[in-house]
């Protein structure tokens, strides 16, 4: 009897520990599925909220913070596309907060560094003429580092190509200069496989769109 109780108790404790991890995986899978299909501002906000709640419960996992930052950046993209340039600032501030935590949990990770490059790129939108001179080169430098950390990360090439695409040609930007990066990204996206169901795979949709525009 005593043995049984001890066995039961230790089993319960173990299963709580396992359950915690299962809970994390299950919550993340749900949230990642949501972000994979997100298109509108409301989608990204809702997915962002889910990642924020997971990060709130699991303070040592970098992925929830990373995805939370991604949702904020995509929200900023949406408000920017609707012409409200100043409104991008609070989203990017929040993205920066989360990516700072992710960086501390896992330094020198190509995905995290790429997200930092995307955030810097987003800083330009508030006022391209003024912010561009500061954040253009800053973003570009960070993305170079992301490529160096993992030369097979398609997102590093895509975000970099995107930055060049929207830079005026006389500053060394434009479609022609962006193309090699977008093509490299496409090649890597095609090879990319998600094995754990959680790792980042975003970006190929817009990469294909930009590549199509660049080939016009």
């Amino acid at each position: 009897m005593k043995k049984t109780i001890i066995f039961l108790l230790s089993f319960a404790i173990c299963s709580i520990a396992f359950a915690q991890n299962d809970k994390y995986i299950a919550a993340m899978k749900k949230a990642v599925a949501q972000v994979d299909t997100a298109r509108t501002l409301d989608d990204f906000k809702a997915a962002g909220n889910m990642f924020e709640r997971i990060a709130n419960a699991e303070k040592n996992q970098w992925l929830p913070y990373y995805y939370h930052a991604y949702c904020q950046v995509m929200s900023a993209v949406d408000v920017m596309n609707h012409g409200d340039l100043k409104a991008t600032v609070p989203y990017l501030d929040k993205a920066q907060e989360s990516i700072d935590v992710a960086k501390k949990l896992l330094p020198d990770n190509s995905e995290i560094v790429t997200m930092q490059g995307y955030i810097y790129q987003g800083r330009i939108w508030e006022n391209p003429m003024i912010k561009g001179a500061k954040y253009g080169p800053k973003s570009s430098g960070v993305l170079d580092k992301a490529i160096e950390l993992d030369p097979n990360n398609p997102r590093a090439y895509y975000v970099k190509g995107q930055g060049i695409f929207y830079t005026p040609a006389f500053f060394g930007g434009g479609a022609d200069n962006a193309k090699p990066f977008l093509e490299k990204a496409k090649e890597l996206y095609e090879k990319e496989e998600r094995t754990d169901g959680l790792s980042p795979t975003w970006g190929s949709f817009y990469n294909n769109y930009l590549l199509k525009e660049a080939n016009k």
């Binding site: 790129q121 561009g132 001179a133 930055g163 060049i164 830079t167 500053f171 930007g173």
Partner: peptide
């Protein structure tokens, strides 16, 4: 940094 691949500023001027 200006000329090769990355720009100084992005977006419409």
């Amino acid at each position: 940094r200006f000329s090769k691949d990355n720009g100084v500023t992005s977006g419409d001027l």
